[in-house]
Amino acid sequence: MQRSPNLMERWKTLSKCVCDGAKLMVGQGDYAAYAEHVRRTHPDRQPMSELEFFRNRENARFGVGNTSGFRCC
């Protein structure tokens, strides 16, 4: 029989979901999930560093390098 998670485990899970959701709303993905995805599905590729990942997501959000003319400011 599986026991139900205690209150602290449930709180940690909820907190992670809220933080992950907030990061996604401002354009910052989950680096750990990205790195695991690359290792699992692209074993021949090296994942970006955490700083490279942050910059990549930031550039994508603000249209850096985008030739369609989008700019936030």
Results as ranks from 00 to 15, higher is better:
M1P: 13
V26H: 10
M8C: 04
F70A: 01
V38N: 01
N66C: 05
R39F: 11
D30A: 08
S4Q: 12
E9L: 02
R45W: 09
A32E: 15
F54N: 02
R3N: 03
L14E: 03
F53S: 09
G65H: 02
H37Y: 15
V38H: 00
K16F: 06
W11Q: 02
R45P: 03
A33P: 13
K23H: 13
T41R: 08
L7A: 08
W11A: 00
Q46P: 00
R71W: 01
M25A: 12
S68L: 10
K23I: 01
F62M: 08
N6H: 06
A22R: 15
P47G: 12
F53A: 09
V38M: 05
R55K: 15
E36A: 10
Q28Y: 15
N59F: 10
G63T: 02
S4K: 12
T13K: 11
G21S: 14
A35H: 10
N56M: 11
T13M: 10
F62N: 02
G27N: 10
F54L: 11
R55Y: 12
L24D: 12
C19Q: 11
Q2R: 03
V18D: 04
E52I: 01
V38E: 01
L7I: 07
F62W: 14
R39D: 13
G29T: 07
G21Y: 15
R55E: 09
V26I: 13
N6Y: 04
M8T: 03
L51Q: 15
T67A: 11
A33N: 14
V64T: 05
A60Q: 14
Y31I: 07
G65V: 06
T67P: 13
S4Y: 07
K16N: 06
C19N: 09
R71Q: 03
W11G: 00
F54V: 02
C73T: 01
V64A: 00
S68T: 10
R57S: 08
R61A: 07
F53K: 06
N59L: 06
P5Q: 11
N66L: 07
V18L: 11
C73F: 00
D30N: 14
D30V: 10
N56F: 11
C72P: 06
R57E: 11
K12C: 05
G27T: 07
G65M: 04
C17S: 09
W11S: 00
G63A: 05
E58Q: 12
E58A: 09
V26C: 10
D20Y: 06
N56V: 05
T13Q: 11
E36N: 04
T67M: 12
E50N: 06
T13E: 11
R3I: 01
Y31Q: 08
Q28M: 12
V26A: 04
L14T: 03
G27S: 08
H37C: 13
R57V: 01
Q2K: 05
G27C: 08
F62D: 02
R55A: 09
L24N: 15
Q28T: 07
M8K: 09
D44R: 13
T41S: 05
T13I: 07
A60S: 15
Q28N: 08
